[in-house]
Design a protein around this nucleic acid. Structure first.
Lengths: 194, 194
DNA sequence: GTCTATACTAAGATAGAC
DNA sequence: GTCTATCTTAGTATAGAC
């Protein structure tokens, strides 16, 4: 019910948001959340049935925040291919992993309440990419044989895969190389404004 | 030392290999490994100092196996761009995640003995892709402005990112779309054999 | 709504017999 | 080399006072 009030509920969710990004779901315990939030045992189990629901609330907030950032990035006003490039090259903390999709490989993804915010976030990015690329295609800027939907799928995959590369090589440059390559490929499959 | 003998050691490592793919590192306990392997407590701690070293041994074997598959895929004999396409379109169990890189977002990746097999695997793929693309470039098959190294980084990122997309959407098709897009993009930035 | 105290199970590792 | 028994701490949740 109440989305406001209860300072401890907010503190708990805020702590969960931080810990889910830092450590993921499995590796975050209710004790960790309580310690970081300054709340006592009772507060958590008063506001939530258990750990899963705390995480679901935290992920929902994170998705909402990040989707707002995406929507701002893709707002009309700049040319469509510039929006795509702006998304690709936005600043990222590669070694921390994607704030939401870092949970992709946890068993928690089989739980819809946890998976859905993550899916909504990456799905929204892919939708925005596709819409921009369709706009570019309509303006005759895409090489024939390059479908906007396929290219959008490639680009979101490159970004999420770039995080993976950075983590396994423990080197931000591994992600940069993939992103730079994607920008080059994007340039190769588009043509300058007529 | 001994790489042979001790049936229980092998059973323990085999069980760890299966569990690491299924559940990841954090979510796999020594008890799970013992239960699946049929070994007792003492066997594990006789052969290994602890959980981390079991996982390191398992990951080393997994990397060795998977690198052998990659090397076979990229063996000379077929034209370079066919090798690249064969890698992209090889059969995968998208929802299970990458056998090695599924660990990318675990805290365990800060441990070199666990990270290195994973990095060696994805690094080898990227090297094979780059070598094939350089060969294609030398044959004049790459569009100008497309660097082999950048394209190789894009393609490994698409595959690893494709696994992420499949998991978060809980849908194999999400990965297929990214892979199909990559094949199309590859077609668009190359030209038919002269 | 919030707290402390408590309970129960699992994680990870050790001890010591065979 | 392998086993069972044991130990210690953390994960997750409940009870009940304030």
């Amino acid at each position: 019910m109440a989305r406001q009030g209860s300072s401890k509920r907010e503190a708990i969710v805020a702590a969960a948001k931080a810990l889910l990004w830092e450590r993921g779901y499995e590796a975050t315990s209710p004790r960790d959340v309580l310690a970081r939030s300054g709340a006592g045992q009772g507060s958590l189990y008063h506001h939530f049935p258990g750990k899963r629901e705390v995480a679901a609330a935290a992920l929902a907030e994170m998705a909402e925040e990040e989707i707002a950032v995406i929507d701002a990035l893709f707002a009309p006003g700049t040319p469509p291919l510039d929006r795509v490039r702006a998304y690709l090259t936005r600043e990222r903390q590669a070694l921390r992993g994607c704030r939401l999709a870092r949970l992709a490989n946890e068993a928690a993804m089989e739980e819809p309440s946890l998976r859905e915010p993550v899916a909504a976030y990456v799905g929204r990015i892919q939708d925005c990419l596709r819409a921009s690329l369709e706009e570019a295609e309509a303006a005759g800027r895409l090489l024939p044989g390059v479908a906007p939907a396929g290219l959008a799928a490639v680009l979101i995959a490159v970004v999420e895969g770039g995080y993976v590369l950075a983590r396994v090589h423990w080197d931000e440059a591994a992600m940069r190389e993939a992103i730079d390559g994607a920008v080059q490929v994007l340039g190769a499959v588009t043509r300058p404004q007529a």
